[in-house]
C-alpha cells in the first residue's frame, strides 16, 4: 500500500481558456498514462465544473495515451453528463490509433486541430 501513497502525488498540468463560450482544456504534458490517469480525471473534474456546454480537450502536446489514460478521458466525458459535449482535438497519430482500435473514436467528436474543432462546434 505504501509504495503508491508514499510516492509523490502527481499533479497533471491542464490549462483552461475560453473561446466564444466554449472551454478549451489543453494538456501541457506528453503523456496521459497509468501514472497520471487519476490526477487527469480529478483535474478535468475541477476544470469543467463551471459547466461550459462545449469543452474541447486539446491533445496536441500529448504523444502517448495508454488504456488507463483512455479510461480517464471516458470518465471525464461521463462526469460532464449527456447535456454537454467533450470533443477531442489535435490527436497525434499514436494517440488517434488507441481511440480507433478501441472504437472510442465513434464516441467522441474528434478534430484534427483545435481550429477545426472551434469552427465546427457552436
Amino acid at each position: 500500500m505504501c509504495n503508491i501513497i508514499q510516492g509523490f502525488r502527481y499533479i497533471m498540468e491542464l490549462v483552461s481558456t475560453t473561446n466564444a463560450g466554449r472551454q478549451i482544456v489543453t494538456v501541457n504534458e506528453a503523456r496521459i498514462d497509468a501514472a497520471v490517469a487519476l490526477s487527469f480525471k480529478e483535474g478535468m473534474r475541477s476544470q469543467t465544473e463551471a459547466g461550459a456546454k462545449i469543452v474541447v480537450l486539446n491533445l496536441q502536446k500529448v504523444d502517448f495515451v495508454d488504456s488507463s489514460g483512455l479510461g480517464a478521458i471516458v470518465a471525464a466525458m461521463k462526469a460532464m453528463g449527456k447535456e454537454r459535449t467533450l470533443a477531442l482535438a489535435g490527436l497525434t497519430p499514436t494517440v488517434a490509433k488507441v481511440f480507433k482500435l478501441t472504437r472510442m473514436d465513434s464516441v467522441f467528436p474528434m478534430f484534427q486541430t483545435l481550429d477545426e474543432a472551434l469552427s465546427n462546434l457552436t
Binding site: D66, S67, S68, L70, G71, A72, V74, A75, M77, K78, K82, V98, L101, T102, R103, M104, S106, V107
Partner: peptide
Amino acid sequence: QADVDVDMFDLPEGGFGWFLIQD
C-alpha cells in the same frame, strides 16, 4: 473488444489493455 454502442454512462473505462496487446 469493449462494446461502445451503449448508453454513455455504460461506456467502459477500463479493460482495454489485453485487447490492445492481442490486437
